[in-house]
Design a binder for these strands. Sequence first.
RNA 1: GCGAGAGUGGCGGAACAGGCAGACGCCCGAGACUUAAAAUCUCGUGGACCGUUUGGUCCGUGCGGGUUCGAGUCCCGCCUCUCGCACCA
Length: 837
Amino acid sequence: MKRGDMEARYNFKEIEPKWQRRWEADELYKVAEDEGKPKFYCLEMFPYPSGNLHMGHVRNYSIGDVVARYKRMRGFNVLHPMGWDAFGLPAENAAIKHGIHPAEWTWNNIANMRRQLMAMGISYDWEREIATCHPNYYKWTQWLFLQMYKHGLAYRKKAAVNWCPSCATVLANEQVVGGACERCGTPVTHRDLEQWFFRITAYAERLLQDLKKLPGWPEKVKVMQENWIGRSEGAEVVFTVAGSGQEIPVFTTRPDTLFGVTYMVLAPEHPLVEELTRGTPYEGPVREFVEAARHLSALDRTATEKEKEGLFIGAYAVNPVNGQKIPIWIANYVLMEYGTGAVMGVPAHDERDLAFARKYGLPVKVVIRPPEGELDAATMAEAYVEPGIMVDSGPFSGLPSEEGKERIIRYLEEKGIGKRRVNYKLRDWLISRQRYWGAPIPIIYCDQCGTVPVPEEDLPVILPEGVEFKPTGESPLKDCPDFVNTTCPACGKPARRETDTMDTFVCSSWYFLRYTSPHSREVPFERDKVDYWMNVDQYIGGVEHAILHLMYARFFTKALYDFGLVGVEEPFQNLLTQGMVLKDGGKMSKSKGNVVSPEDIIERYGADTARLFILFAAPPERDLEWSDHGVEGCYRFLNRVWRLVYNYSGKVRGVEAGQGEIKLGSRADRELYRLIHATIKKVTEDIEERFNFNTAISAIMEMVNGFYHYQDNVPEGEQNLPLVKMGLKNLVTLLAPFAPHIAEEMWQGIGEEGSVHLESWPTYDPQALKTEEVTIVVQINGKVRDRLQVPAGLREEDLKEAVLSRDKIASLLSGQQVLKVVVVPDKLVNIATRQGG
RNA sequence: GCGAGAGUGGCGGAACAGGCAGACGCCCGAGACUUAAAAUCUCGUGGACCGUUUGGUCCGUGCGGGUUCGAGUCCCGCCUCUCGCACCA
């Protein structure tokens, strides 16, 4: 049974692979720079090649493909690439567990996932595919590291790393869950090692400020980054140790409370702690306290309401503004990494300080009083943290505290005992990983010359293949003499290579640039190409990367801008964070046994159905509840579209669908015509303005329903074939970004040439949307009481007249006094009444 | 605790600018086709009530107030859930 080229039955198993092959052979999605067209860079976060696509990927890439295909049809030159975030821990775990080499494991996974992605029919330019574990890629990751080093943005210092005593290995931050080892649950401790860092803190202010330049980002993500950067304004005040005069700078956001300081607290790790207690009776207990704090610090972080523990260390500090002597304590809640590692205690005006002071019987001194009322230091149960009037503060007494802040800062600067300071929570980015499966850090250590960067012409520093994976706690590269032993590029003497590899987030911080010239052997990316394509017009991915990946990529882009390598300061113009795919109200998980495999769905219903369902079930930003019945419904819908097109395919082949000059004889014709144009409008706006693919698809469903209505109710001889043809063309075109294979097949089925994906996106005729008649709702006191049909555009007075003259309304109004009549033309009339009159 | 978002039928979700609440889909029900079933098609489907039918009345968007001719939508006060941050001086 054939009609034209179309089979009676929708056979996705045949048509999907067929069109995928055709697209590839025709290089339909291959793209090059073209100054004649506006460009559009559409990017989805590239996946870690875990081995199999999951529903989150399907969602991510289906959303991206709608955008890419739509923009292409709108005449944009669209870059839509895909690649692999291919370095990382699971590859090594697989090596330890199954004895398979990480490289082999990774490349196998990539091959499988590429096959799965291709089966989804996503419109990628596969010639631009990249994998971060390929030497041609990580050569440039290393090169970029060297640029960072050259510009002083990469440096080495001693730092604590996460250490699992049971596995005897170093852990990445992502492997520490709730202060314990992800694999064995043993509490994680810290070890001090020499580590490489990127100086992201140098960009803290710009990373914060430039968030304002990103109106196309979700507010949520920007707020998360803002919190992460954690800017706070205040002052650094230099206290001195009583007697010795050693300086202890503290950071405070409340310089106005400086006269209320009654004690000082140092972080247990503060270098002065040992110095001040050495040889005193306090030495022993303090050391014990410090040891305990260090030990606990990993778990400490996650404890919700940790009791504040402190200890007096036997020394005193001098408050520089009033010369007062105050005791120095150490406490577990003071962090060495933030500020200066020392805090001034103002119990009257800080919640924590008050709790601490009350617990240890430290004095409380009020220096800010509320605009009305007094505070009693002895009895106050809550710290007064609001602004107020300064009291008991020497020359500053009587000032409003906000003004006092400024005045005290100026005073500190004049006297040289402090200065204005802005502080950030953001820390430098530790990029060293004591791991094998990553890009080697291109550094050589020479006994004579010290730390020497690998010369650029020697890149890449190849990751050697023959290594053993033992849980020694050090990079497996350490046991690979051929790798470690080298000669110093500066003096030629024997030297050792750095054996740590880079955090995988380094690799993913610049991959969007590489896509613009993925095969270049001379440079990481060609300047003219990167200038043509950047920045990414639409970036799409999970919100779990809201901070790390997105912040690092922004940092890289800014640094590369400063190095003169790129012309943009922000990588991603617009960001869409998609919600999770849930099942039974929760995450799909192996332990629950409710994982739905994309491959199974594609096998049973085809890629078009899978894509359609996942786009239809919820708007992209919201979480999506997976429903097998829902998938079934989408499959039914595609079959329904297929049958409609099939029924007409023989009749409309060869019929010209001249958009403008279609004769609309009957009312049914006019209704269908209107429906077609209303659908074009709705679908266009839903995609363009709001990414509401769910409502766009429901509009297409309504169009199909309307089409069936026409088919079933207009006698065959009276059906307007040019109109039908025009409608079917539009229907197929509108469906193309969502269900690309079936659209292509139907396009051919109605006798059209070429690929539907090369067609222009349809435009609607605003005239067509105007109806001749409109339904007016009549309300009395806000309740719907009647409806009437009137010609569209009826004037207010006429409409009012028409409504009030209706028998039904008149009878409803009898015995009522009309207070007011509100008329909304073409929509509604509301009559406000009162009993009686 | 702080910040962000969300609460609408049996379910997923619509309602874009304050104007017919529940589009579209699922589930469920009835009918058509069929020897039968599946598939498909058509119709119905928020709740309560009234009416012999056409139809009609009342209630209804987490809760309580308010503004308005009119509130899912705006304002005030609460409740619940999700996510993120959480001793940051």
